[in-house]
Design a protein around this nucleic acid. Structure first.
Lengths: 237, 237
DNA sequence: GAGTGGTCTAGACCACTGT
DNA sequence: CAGTGGTCTAGACCACTCC
């Protein structure tokens, strides 16, 4: 198993600090030659490292050393901005689109809406220290959704909704999954079309027990780790 | 992108019911010939399907169609047995090993133990309708751990511990992650050494707020889905 | 023993990136 | 335009499974 030893060799380079966080690895051809092997075998080794979260790949750009992850707690309704502030990470959340659309069956079920309901869909991207690491789809029922029209670039969706209706801070349920990136997601996050992304789907309830926000976060597993019901771990950066 | 259309062709065969749950796919060589391509490209297509959770692979056995998943809620301390009963799935939990061992740094941190503490490590495998789909590592501090000696094959660890100390049903915190299977895990679950497994790490607290059980579940993502704070979804099987 | 998946070689062409 | 990653071909040998 040649690719195992190649994996370990590159891993050691990273652990030892020879390759810094965010640094680009040499080209696949160069690396393959270094290890006297072919690109196929080399890519196998890199894919192992990607699974481990040590490296990641940008479409047609190359392979990069992963930075230390952000810890995210989906049992809160905090946005990424607040989470990043707490962990002293430089993060920016950018609007991609905002539209009113017919709720899919899945969305309607989560939000307990009747058929043919409309929802507002607010899509944002999350950039952590220069790298796009997540996409967020936020679905708001039509009733409160009109509040979003007043929203300004950079506003937190929860803050805006909070002006309209109070919510119960404990009222969050969530789901965890894994799925390959869609075409849209690959484009935005600059991933290969084959990349896998993890998903967290959070439903936020108001005090009456009615769901009023569905938040689906699709993220790169090497960049964001899920920590439920814990304080963020002390970081070593 | 030939592998995309191959992926979709096989996917359609599965969705249409031509390939039943648990059924073995034809050999890679046969499939490659069917699609007039090489094994490399074909395996790319199958890996995509594996990411989607539609198929899975057993080491040196071949590719199989995934069955519908079990929904597991880590915010409870229910074992798999109870979860399976609720969802009317045939599941068996089998002991692999039980030993007293020095707590690693990670385990000691989670269980809030001082250095050089001993823990009991109870390892079980979870078989869902004939397929091994998960491994569980359960760590119990030395104090309560001796109770495990009385445990019989098939006993639930929580039930046994419950005789010794009461616990607070809400006192569960947990973490998600993803990591490649270890050598041991590949062997037990019959996976390729390269396979990725999802992890849930649950810490169960007693009424005094002291952690008394750490439970790490390593599972195949196509076979088990995480559902937090929800009732199991209605199944269509 | 035939067939399988696991691993690997040594190329190739294309679309795209960065300069 | 040179170089890169994305994709693909057409083989090969080995260890293992299944019959």
């Amino acid at each position: 198993m040649q690719y195992i030893s190649i994996k370990e060799a590159i891993e050691e380079q990273i652990e030892s600090g020879m390759l810094a966080e965010g640094q680009k690895l040499p080209s696949e051809r160069t690396l393959a030659e270094s290890f006297s092997t072919t690109r196929v075998t080399l890519r196998e080794a890199l894919q192992q490292l990607a699974l481990l979260g040590k490296v990641y790949k940008e479409e047609r750009k190359g392979w990069f050393v992963s930075a230390s992850p952000l810890y995210f707690d989906p049992s809160h309704h905090f946005g990424f901005k607040k989470t990043c502030q707490q962990q002293k990470r430089a993060c920016s959340v950018k609007q991609i689109s905002l539209e009113r659309t017919l709720a899919s069956k899945e969305i309607a079920t989560y939000l307990q809406l009747p058929p043919f309901s409309y929802v507002y869909l607010y899509i944002t991207s999350v950039t952590l220290e220069g790298r796009k690491v997540a996409l967020q789809y936020q679905y708001v029922p039509d009733i409160q959704g009109s509040a979003l029209k007043e929203m300004l670039e950079g506003d937190d969706i929860i803050s805006v909704l909070n002006k309209r209706c109070l919510y119960d801070a404990d009222g969050v349920s969530f789901t965890f999954d894994i799925a390959p990136a869609t075409h849209f997601e690959s484009n935005v996050l600059r991933l290969s079309s084959s990349s896998m992304l993890l998903s967290v789907i959070q439903t936020v309830f108001n005090q009456a027990g009615t769901p009023f926000l569905l938040q689906k976060t699709r993220y790169c597993h090497d960049a964001i780790k899920i920590e439920v019901g814990k304080m963020p771990l002390p970081k070593t950066r």
